[in-house]
């Protein structure tokens, strides 16, 4: 009985602490004089690029003063995202910004939002739904093509082995980056592509590259579909005695996409030849502008926006390194 009482007291204290901490966390700022607009964001996951994608919304909202932003993270669970979107709508948001865990699984939630008069916008993943008013995305296929063309600049026509780090096969961006790369590389019969499946996980990337290096120690080039795995490649190459600077003999040509950390640093250190930088931060700003126009009842010039990926080479580091998104937002990524 005594233990039960103790347990109850413990439970009650935790719930009181929880109540106050949640209440404090959710405390509203002073209400602005103007009409308040609330934007609800539902992201699929919380990694660094996702954080930067929506940073533009926060920046613009701060400038406006009367815009409140609520952000939720579905932790890669479509069912959770379904609930989150409905919860955002029930809380009375004026617009939702969704990065879909699954493009088909959120249809009912998007329809629910539209029925309640909420502006529906998406980013990263395109969803075929008439209620979607604006989508900001990436042309991952073109990004794959860009990386392949950059790698081909080093091709001397001799037979070579190229490692391709492929992302999660359930991710449409991973598939498009793969397909775009192959559309350019496959006609070049001198290049043998060895695919390394990573699931976007750095440990799998490390093991995969290590294993591949055992079979193909004379690897000539590497295409990394996401720069957050650059550290794994660097470690595997170092352990195999293959890590050389871009201007040293024995260097493995290396093209990396996205430029999430630690990509930029490894590029700066001279191991990556071409960094294909996706300016994730432009996404949020464009979405915000679209929402404000829709809120004001204006028509959009286009219901789509694509982030423009750009390539930076070793001879351009001094001039362009600071323009890479991960460098511009280094403080926010800490």
């Amino acid at each position: 009985m005594k233990r039960l009482k103790l347990f109850l007291v413990l439970l009650l204290s935790v719930s009181v602490v929880m109540t106050f901490s949640i209440a404090a966390g959710g405390k509203k700022e002073a209400a602005p004089a103007e009409e308040e607009i609330t934007i609800g964001i539902s992201t699929d996951a919380g990694y660094s690029a996702r954080k930067i994608e929506v940073i533009g919304i926060y920046q613009e909202a701060k400038k406006a003063g009367n815009v409140k932003v609520i952000e939720q993270n579905a932790d890669n669970d479509s069912s959770k995202q379904l609930q989150q979107i409905k919860a955002l709508v029930d809380q009375g948001v004026d617009a939702i910004v969704v990065c879909a865990v699954d493009m088909n699984a959120i249809q009912t939630a998007l329809n629910y939002a539209a029925e309640k008069g909420v502006i529906v916008t998406l980013y990263d993943r395109f969803v075929d739904n008439p209620n979607v008013q604006f989508t900001g995305g990436y042309n991952s296929y073109t990004d794959g093509v860009l990386c392949a063309n950059e790698l081909l600049k080093f091709d001397d026509g001799q037979p070579h082995v190229v490692f391709e780090l492929v992302g999660n096969l359930a991710d449409t961006n991973a598939l498009a980056r793969r397909d775009g790369f192959h559309s350019v590389i496959d006609p070049h019969e001198n290049l043998k592509v060895v695919q390394i499946l990573t699931d976007w996980a750095t440990d799998k990337a490390l093991t995969g590259v290590k294993n591949a290096l055992q079979k193909y120690p004379d690897v000539w080039g590497i295409y990394n579909a996401s720069s957050h795995m650059d550290g794994s490649i660097q470690t595997a190459l170092r352990e195999a005695g293959k890590l050389y600077n871009y201007d040293e003999p024995g260097h493995v040509y290396w093209v990396s996409l996205g430029e999430e950390p630690p990509g930029p640093q490894i590029f700066k250190d001279g191991y990556v030849d071409v960094a294909c930088d996706i300016p994730f931060d432009t996404m949020g700003e464009q979405i915000y502008k679209a929402i404000m126009k829709l809120y004001a009842g204006e028509e959009l010039v286009s219901d789509k926006f694509f982030c423009k990926t750009w390539a930076i080479h070793q001879d351009e580091i001094d001039e362009k390194y600071d323009q890479m998104w991960a460098i511009r937002f280094a403080d926010e990524l800490k």
């Binding site: 413990l10 439970l11 935790v14 966390g25 959710g26 919380g46 993270n73 609930q83 989150q84 955002l88």
Partner: peptide, 24 residues
Amino acid sequence: INGMTFLNLTIAMQQIILGSIFVI
């Protein structure tokens, strides 16, 4: 899971609360 979606907590905070409830 459902209730926390209304409280606009970060995923990290949600996991801490969920984990704490499991521990108790």
